[in-house]
Design a protein around this nucleic acid. Structure first.
Length: 255
DNA sequence: ATGGTTGCGGAGCAA
């Protein structure tokens, strides 16, 4: 089973790239973030023609998450207990016996800001939700744009980013609490090239100079972790004309 | 410290 995540930064703009990528890579599951589409505008038909089912939770202009899958998507969920949030950042569904939790984690803007406090609060509530889901589902993945670089080796310039947004200690501790539920960062289970990143700022030629961060993650529950055979970042779509600022991340599991 | 770019929506915010 091939499970992927991709922050597309507008599905309206990126739909052709997504369809091309689906055809080339044939993932079983693709979680999307920053679709930036209301549900009435979601391209259900084009995705169906590509051979995928979909569930989605969107809003105008900002945020928005979706899951595309070869098999049927069961028990979709868009809101969690104790988090009354108009921002569409969470989408869970079950595919082929695997609970898939797609997250577009709050960016947080700047350490110490109001948005930063919201990010940490949001992460705490989502951690509680994941804990509950793990009790109900042995095979589970939490994936998406975490907007947190787990370690300094996930940062092109750790000194420049020291205690900055996406890298601060409280953010990393919040991520660790999620990992401490028993989840594993699939990417780090395998040998990887140094300077592996999943996001590069559009500004200052970030991608050309590989000034990136690894903030897009696939976390797996123990039952899935032991079946994980590969995890890679596919940088090719980032090279395209008019790319997303994020690259897809792909994990493979054997059954 | 600032700026650099993209998307949305049609100015300025979010990332």
């Amino acid at each position: 089973m091939k499970i992927a995540t991709w922050n597309v930064n507008s599905l309206k703009v990126r739909l052709p790239q997504v369809l091309d990528w689906l055809a080339a890579q044939q993932p079983d599951v693709l979680a999307l973030q920053e679709t930036k589409l209301t549900d009435d505008a979601f391209p259900v038909e084009a995705i169906r023609e590509a051979g995928y089912h979909c569930v989605y939770s969107g809003q105008k202009t900002y945020n928005g998450v979706a899951i595309l899958a070869r098999h049927e998507l069961l028990d979709p969920l868009t809101d969690i207990d104790g988090l009354d949030d108009p921002q569409r950042r969470i989408l869970a569904a079950t595919v082929d016996g695997v609970r898939v939790i797609n997250l577009y984690v709050v960016n947080g803007s700047e350490v110490g800001s109001e948005k930063y406090a919201y990010k940490l609060d949001w992460l705490g509530k989502v951690t509680g939700f994941i804990a509950g889901e793990m009790k109900r589902h042995e095979k589970l993945v939490v994936l998406g744009d975490f907007n947190i670089a787990p370690e300094d080796r996930d940062v092109h310039d750790p000194e420049a980013w020291h205690e900055k947004i996406l890298c601060s200690t409280p953010e990393r501790e919040a991520l660790k609490k999620i990992l401490d539920l028993g989840l594993s960062d699939c990417f780090r289970r395998f040998e990887q090239p140094e300077q592996s990143f999943s996001w590069w700022d559009y500004r200052a030629a970030g991608f050309r100079r590989n000034l990136g961060l690894r903030i897009d993650l696939i976390l797996s529950s123990p039952a899935l972790t032991e079946t994980c055979t590969a995890c890679i970042i596919d940088v090719e779509p980032r090279r395209l004309e008019r790319p997303s600022d994020h690259a897809p991340v792909v994990a493979e599991f054997v059954s």
